[in-house]
Amino acid sequence: MLRYALKRLVSLAISLVVASVVIFAMVEVVPGDPAAYMLGINATEETLNALRDQLGLNGTLLERYAGWVGGMLRGDFGTSYTYRTPVAEMIGERLWISLPLALFALTLSTAIAFPAGIWAASKRGSLVDTSVMGVTQLGVAIPNFWFAMLMVLVFAINLRWFNAGGFAGWDAGILPAMKSLTLPAIALALPQASILARVMRSSLLDTLGEDFIRTARAKGLSKRQALWRHALRNALIPVLTIIGLQFSFLMAGAIIIENVFFLPGLGRLVFQSISARDLIVVESVVMLLVFAVVMVNFAVDLAYAVVDPRLRVRA
């Protein structure tokens, strides 16, 4: 198990290095000079050069890459070209919204998907199964921003249970902060829950058709016992894969929902930075997201090994 974890760690490190090189290279080839963008068209070559020096844009490629990576390792992500504030600070603020939002949404989607998927699988072909399949079909088909707008209309504008947007801030206390994340989290969670429930159901049905379930039944286990004791854990592998992918998506892909609810999250930060050519912010946020995705995959890999003893050996 330890060796498995170590191997995963090595591959994690390699992924991070490769990703940093790719991100750096992409930002390098993007046309547009941040210094020119910041100073406007009337700037002289001298002032431009001075600013480039200040921003660390004048070294060789290798120097700049080393400077960027070294800075990140120390927690120094550089200074935003547009806001003139440290990127680390900007990311830090936004992370405190995006990360809780992603975790909230993931918890919701798992809490909905597991029971729904298990229930549908255990009553295959019944009314329950058909309804779960029908509802999740809708959930997959309807885009989440439409859900979001619908919820704003019903719960914020008509019923006035929630605010229509904005973030209360963690200073206001956990409950108000969570309350302002609730509608966005639900909007993010519903399509994810639909997909996850369907994966759970089909994976569980596959497992329930396996020979060892028949063996368990021949031992005297009831259908229910066989499902909970033998099928569920075996059915988890594909479900874990989807959860990992979904978490990665939630971290980076919440842009639209953040916009609908006026949440200052990472997604909006990336969007704004790209429009403003604030490449150092883009670079850093993208690298951070890559880091998050890689870490989630690492966690999912470890979870695989916990679930399935065969993987501990194979690696």
Partner: peptide, 27 residues
């Protein structure tokens, strides 16, 4: 069904054709 569950494994045991898949791989 509950009475049948009490008999299966207790008064009658069964062995299957495919030993490779008849056991739960994660227990």
């Amino acid at each position: 069904e509950p009475s049948l569950c009490r008999l299966r494994g207790n008064e009658v045991g069964m062995v299957f054709q495919e030993p490779m898949t008849a056991l739960n791989p994660i227990k």
